[in-house]
Write a protein that binds this DNA or RNA. Sequence first.
DNA 1: GGCCCGCCTGAGAGCCGCCTGAGAAGCTGA
DNA 2: TCAGCTTCTCAGGCGGCTCTCAGGCGGGCC
Lengths: 224, 224
Amino acid sequence: MRLLLVEDEARLAHALQRGLRADGFAVDVAGDGPGGLARAREGGYDAIILDVMLPGLSGYRIVRSLRQEQNWVPVLMLSAKDGEHDQADGLDCGADDYLTKPFSYVVLVARLRALLRRGAPRRPVVLTAGPVTLDPGSRAVTYAGAPVELTGREFDLLEYLMRRPDTVLTKTELLDHVWDASPQTDPNLVEVYVGYLRRKLDRSLIATVRGSGYRLVSAASGGV
Amino acid sequence: MRLLLVEDEARLAHALQRGLRADGFAVDVAGDGPGGLARAREGGYDAIILDVMLPGLSGYRIVRSLRQEQNWVPVLMLSAKDGEHDQADGLDCGADDYLTKPFSYVVLVARLRALLRRGAPRRPVVLTAGPVTLDPGSRAVTYAGAPVELTGREFDLLEYLMRRPDTVLTKTELLDHVWDASPQTDPNLVEVYVGYLRRKLDRSLIATVRGSGYRLVSAASGGV
DNA sequence: GGCCCGCCTGAGAGCCGCCTGAGAAGCTGA
DNA sequence: TCAGCTTCTCAGGCGGCTCTCAGGCGGGCC
């Protein structure tokens, strides 16, 4: 079993590499983002262990690039931040599992083995909610079968909503995840973009939960 | 000259890739059988270097599948086993040449060049997208039936786009595959060449996906 | 029913990504 | 060596996208 470890903290990288080798894995190490992405693109790995905070290119962006290129190698993400950004961020980008630093080595290996058992047969996912489909790979959206043109921000927002259908999402949460914005950003921004989506898609697709936030209705009527 | 290297030993793959690049080839790498077959099916390679022992799908079966699908791309096979299976096995399956590990890099390149000189015996594939046709064999392009003169780079870019119609391709990916360039190359280069193609072909053939990249529209109108 | 506050929306400013023309550098063949 | 072509670089400009702002609507509480 061949692994790619992308980790910039040399001490941790070294320790992991030694441990994993002792456990029978072949381990290659990349120390920065661009290098990691390049190695990952070359293929040949049964799984990739990926730190989030990397010089040059974040782990998030690496996974997103790989998935966009139809590369479905299993990815286990490591994050030092357990509050600011959360699991969902990593999983959104297309990672398969997530571990928060500090973690136990035993847990890492267990999760890794689970990933490898599962393998990489994941097909490119297309999200669906009522008459709306969204393909993260080609960044294409259709409504009732017809293609819909969305801007980048509109697409990101819709994707985030569609990954959590029927859940109330606060504006703060959306600002944080879709915009990567500071907490004091005007929440009106979200309202504006929800308005854009409603106009381009379906007025009833995104329900307002007054005082709380918004909720994507997965069983949208499709009428007008 | 574009090569596909299917090899699961990451270290060997990496070394070969580096060497071949230095020798002027553009090299894509696949690390397992199914991945290699998929990449090979996409076409666009002047030759394929194929390991016999691969996870998921043996090199033999890959060649057999390709030949069954009328894909006559030159294949050079690599095998670690020099006794159990022999040259005849590989050549029977439809490979064009055969090398036993360990081999000298110089020999590999020599055999490869011989293969490339010989070329693929039959090239039945012609790519089509709306009013545009592209023949990888003769490197000829037509628009609405009339021949169009493209430079080398223009042709390579168009071919890459036409092999992945309706998919968003980032500038980085295009630079990587069409130019075989380092990641820090100015992405404007892609913009310029997309502009050239649009001018020579159809303005609407290649859609800009702002913030993401470009997408070849397979159902282009053909108008104008 | 009246008021407050949260949400909606139209208009517009600023910015950034993309497009393009011009030209330098490199390559090829005569 | 030179001409012609291709490839690539650079800078200027345009336009779409993002975000801000202010005014209006309406739901909910009293």
